[in-house]
Write a protein that binds this DNA or RNA. Structure first.
Lengths: 333, 333
DNA sequence: CCGCAAACTGTTACCGATAACATGTTACCG
DNA sequence: CGGTAACATGTTATCGGTAACAGTTTGCGG
């Protein structure tokens, strides 16, 4: 178990001080070009590996950005993460990913854990947190960005959209088509907060438009997926056609419902309209295409990265960015 | 800009040495229970946040495990990541995720970057790496696990399956059904190495079974998605039905092709069989269900975590785990 | 009341890089 | 040839925990 190679070792090998090695390896121009080349060469030969931990410790800058998502297993969340990642790795930042499984208590726990790593910023999906988590975040004295939502009482910066307003787009569209008897399909109330906002948006808009009360169908615990959407239909069989339209909390759920309808011989959209949410690939490629709402997932990641760049450049006043949402007409409504 | 609260500060507050604070906060039994409680209380009151960076630096144990995936935006890869994550966060390990965008050069770069963080292990998807990356990894003296493949010349541990053999299952099935004129739809040769192995498996098996040469259709640069699958059909219109079967590199591609066929009035499976790969939700929920191969993505993550636990417990002899693959019959073949 | 173990707490040095400051060396000017 | 700027390198202290070792106190048997 030989000790690791350090700058000290490289310095000894070239008969110089560790400080010069440090400078040379960072490409500091004040070190003579020839010396710089030599040091890099020797470091390579010795198999020297830079120690970011030591650097983070000494400079008190970790180069980490913490990101908390409900789940990584969601094409839209993954898209946001990718946007962030692409934008930030260029700046030498490394993302620390945590998955809350749609639970604020888990989020609180992860916030605590991740803050011990001294991240330079933290990005949270959603605007709802435990009181303890809020307190920790306020004390942390690092930039906080809440995404995918427009929280009434933000912790710092915001890059998101109104889930309720986006859901309203769907209901208004259905009402224009003359659909009156709606059902909303989503996860059990509680965990999925963005889904909950969408549900509230649907109920409120329907009421405002004078439609009959919207039936709320519980598809199971979050995260709800294609299979849940299919199961909702399978359980109710043709009785589902008593509704005019099924407003699903996400495209995968809508897709599951749509395909189960096909199996049962329920005609979409003639017997029943189905709408999704999120503008996932599956909504676009599906035949028929699913009516949905685009939420600009990748853009949220990019814009959040932009906010961070601003903050690191000194512009620390809180930003509030609404990326909006957009109705995408398909063939299922 | 007040200095951060350290153990030293807590120690001063309770009039004890930092060492006792350190022990107390870690729950060391040798510290008097009452003292321990007091210290935790005071630490909380002062808003003390433990510094993992300092710990990692002092103990030379980072608590990181590096994970390199081609993309996070793939339900199966995400599933593997989730399996890993769930299994390892219990052990206090934090995953460092890197995305190679299906390129070995990018992998090499990321390996270099991530190793500077002193990960305690590194997990790579795939068995093909640049020579430089191999060298770095061999010198790193940390456990290496290659997943999702069975590399001929492994760097360390292996948890995967044979993509070629899995692809063979599909071709054998199609041959049994009397399909002879096959086309393979995948990403352009080069980047997607797992896809390449599948292609080779398809070509070799077809040849071995005496089928006519398999046409290789290039769906575009990796990663290929639903849209690429749809585009392949759209470009060729009804001419695609000259084939007996379309062997797609993944379920999303198959799904895209299937739905575009529906648009064009091509009957699947009567006019054309379509098969996927990966046993994604979309294959199961789709109507018709897509014939595919299950690759046990989550299990790969779990088993890899198991390997790590073994290694950290001292059992360092290289493990070779073949999780296998399984033909899943659908309604598209 | 001595001796010794058990229970608890303290001291010192160190992990590897680098900011801040100091020093040495060369080059060029009047 | 003295003086000074420009360039190149070195010294020292430090970031916040913790391993290893070193006390100190208490309790109890003999």
């Amino acid at each position: 178990m030989t000790r690791r190679v350090t700058m000290r070792d490289v310095a000894r090998a070239v008969d110089m001080s560790p400080m010069t090695v440090s400078r040379a390896l960072r490409g500091d121009e004040t070190v003579n070009a020839k010396t710089r080349g030599l040091i890099k060469q020797v470091a390579d030969d010795l198999g020297y590996v830079y120690d970011s931990t030591a650097q983070a410790f000494r400079t008190q800058k970790s180069g980490f950005v913490a990101v908390l998502l409900p789940s990584i297993n969601n094409a839209n969340f993954a898209e946001t993460f990718r946007g962030l990642s692409n934008a930030l790795t260029g700046d030498g930042l490394q993302l620390l990913l945590g998955s809350t499984n749609y639970r604020v208590e888990k989020e609180e726990e992860l916030v605590g854990q991740l803050l011990t790593r001294n991240p330079e910023a933290i990005i949270l999906m959603g605007g709802h947190h435990t009181a303890a988590a809020r307190k920790i975040l306020e004390n942390a004295k690092i930039p906080v960005i809440e995404i995918w939502d427009l929280p009434p009482d933000p912790l710092g910066h915001v890059v998101g959209f109104s889930n309720a307003d986006a859901a309203a787009l769907i209901v208004e569209h259905l009402a224009r088509q003359g659909r009156r008897k709606l059902a909303f399909v989503g996860a059990s109330a509680g965990a999925d907060l963005r889904g909950g906002s969408r549900r509230e948006g649907v109920l409120a808009t329907a009421a405002a438009l004078g439609l009959p009360p919207v039936e709320v169908i519980d598809a199971g615990e979050a995260p709800v997926s294609m299979r849940h959407g299919a199961a909702v239909i399978a359980e109710r069989d043709r009785a589902i056609a008593e509704f005019d339209a099924l407003v699903c909390v996400s495209d995968p759920v809508a897709f599951g419902a749509l395909n189960e309808c096909r199996r049962l011989g329920i005609n979409v959209p003639d017997d029943l309209a189905i709408t999704g949410f999120g503008h996932f690939d599956v909504a676009v490629v599906s035949s028929p295409r699913i009516t949905t709402v685009s939420v600009h997932a990748a853009e949220i990641g990019l814009r959040a990265a932009g906010v961070l760049r601003d903050v690191f450049a000194g512009k620390s006043d809180p930003q509030w960015i609404d990326v909006g949402a957009e109705l995408i007409l398909g063939e299922t409504s």
